[in-house]
């Protein structure tokens, strides 16, 4: 039943209907696919590919976080400010992530929205030691949540309260309160304190994210 639905969607509503969007993406060669592949796909043996967007203010540690997710041998030793964006890939459990690591510099924040449309999850990195700019973070977050490509979708949002090792760092609870995360009703969200330099807290967050995406896909798939 699902397959029939998908074929119709790809033809007519590919860009309007997000419910089926992941399927069109996950099943690229739908029409030509052999019966064996269909079976594999259905059983979830084959890796699913998802896109996540990594956003946050400049110097909050986005590239460092993404760098941590990669395999040991692929990591870069030196992180420089991102100009524009960078594409990185990593895996968690059975899910292949393509992370769009956006530049957080003021000049480039307007460009995030170009990538909202086709992401399956958002990772929002916050520098928890930077109390001063917490209002800026809130502003950017509100803008993001109100964007037409985001507001009506059930997208999981993962917050990293990064730089937890810093002395003046705020706790994740305080940050959640300051950003008013409790007001987000229609999207699953999760905040975890992290230290991207050591990798502390990252795994917990990304596992939550994986689980959420998997749930959503399964929910749509059944």
């Amino acid at each position: 039943m699902v397959f029939v639905l998908v074929t119709i969607e790809t033809r007519l509503y590919r860009h309007e209907c997000y419910a089926c969007f992941w399927f069109t993406a996950n099943v690229p060669e739908f029409g030509t696919m052999g019966i064996f592949q269909k079976l594999v796909q259905f059983l979830g043996v084959r890796k699913r590919e998802v896109n996540v967007l990594v956003v946050g203010l400049n110097n909050s540690g986005k590239s460092t976080v993404v760098n941590r997710f990669k395999n040991q041998d692929e990591r870069v030793t030196e992180i420089v400010p991102t100009v524009g964006f960078a594409v990185e890939r990593f895996q968690n459990q059975n899910l292949a992530f393509t992370a769009f690591d956006m530049s957080g510099h003021g000049r480039y924040r307007d460009l995030w929205e170009h990538y909202y449309k086709d992401c399956n999850g958002i990772i929002f990195v916050i520098d928890s030691s930077d109390r001063l700019r917490l209002v800026v973070v809130k502003e950017e977050l509100d803008l993001l949540l109100q964007h037409p490509d985001i507001c009506n979708r059930r997208l999981p949002i993962l917050f990293f309260a990064n730089k937890m090792d810093c002395k003046e760092a705020l706790s994740s609870v305080k940050i959640a309160a300051a950003l008013g995360l409790d007001k987000i009703m229609d999207k699953p969200w999760h905040i975890s304190a992290s230290n991207a330099l050591t990798g502390e807290g990252l795994q917990e967050g990304v596992e939550w994210m994986t689980q959420q995406i998997r749930d959503i896909i399964l929910a749509k798939g059944s």
Partner: peptide, 12 residues
């Protein structure tokens, strides 16, 4: 417009 978005990807 905003073609500088690919700067990091290209430097990589």
């Amino acid at each position: 417009e905003d073609v500088i978005i690919v700067t990091s990807s290209l430097t990589k």
